[in-house]
Design a protein around this nucleic acid. Structure first.
Lengths: 130, 130
DNA sequence: ATAGCTGCAAAATGTTTGCGCGAAA
DNA sequence: TTTCGCGCAAACATTTTGCAGCTAT
């Protein structure tokens, strides 16, 4: 993989983002530094980075577009159905989980994609204060 | 919601399928019984059924299209990265999970979407017999 | 009678790709 | 200098929508 300013910038943008961005959102951010970057280049590099394991992608039913995550360690996503915010949470349950599933089905787990939907702490009070 | 032959057929098709179908696959199956059904109608009804909680939708990173699941009870999906097969598995771990997350973050969980990627039992032997 | 559903086709959305030029090795 | 990545625009895939006619209530 040959170096490119564009790819570096895309990766950096994603690593420093606290949210889970779409390709379009990344495109907008990247262009603030390097206005000539095209959307095609953003997509090409995101696919490349996912392939190489430098970032992760996540799709959520409800939204049509793919979101990208600069964190490479496995973790869960909490999606608030009220405000749409996606939060990361670390859980140490993956290993016992995998063993359980392997014993029961013979399926050997490589990767986890756990999404929990509900109401986040910030939105929760509103349920009671209307 | 008014009765329609099309919607009944779509739901029935999904309930009796052992796989997780895309809209296009459902369209093909439904047309075997009622050839005039349009793809637009399939999409409209799938969205309606998901909204009403009569079916579930799932998106998987890697595939572009949404898949639909006739099972309404919460369960995990095992996706084989070798053959692409999606298997259901029931797990009784959701409740303790939710409590743990609520205690730690204040996020109150309504719904789970757990996807595990790996190699299924059928594909696994090939890893060792090459 | 009328609200809601359908088929059709066009539009909208999100992502990929072919091409010729320019940058990295 | 050769290979790879880029920008651009067109193509592609998937899903949604407007409309006029039909169907269930």
């Amino acid at each position: 993989m040959k170096y490119s300013k564009q790819r570096e910038l895309i990766l950096e943008t994603l690593k420093s983002a606290e949210t889970h961005l779409t390709a379009e959102e990344i495109h907008i951010l990247v262009r603030k530094t390097l206005p000539s970057v095209s959307l095609g280049t953003v997509y090409r590099n995101l696919n490349l980075l996912v392939e190489r394991g430098l970032i992760r992608s996540l799709t959520t039913s409800g939204s049509t577009s793919i979101r990208y995550d600069g964190r490479t360690e496995e973790h869960c996503h909490l999606i608030c159905t009220s405000c749409g915010k996606i939060t990361d949470i670390d859980l140490d349950i993956f290993t016992p989980f995998d063993v359980f599933i392997y014993d029961r089905t013979g399926f050997s787990v490589d990767d986890h994609d756990f999404v929990l939907k509900g109401i986040c702490a910030d939105c929760s009070p509103h349920k009671f204060t209307i």
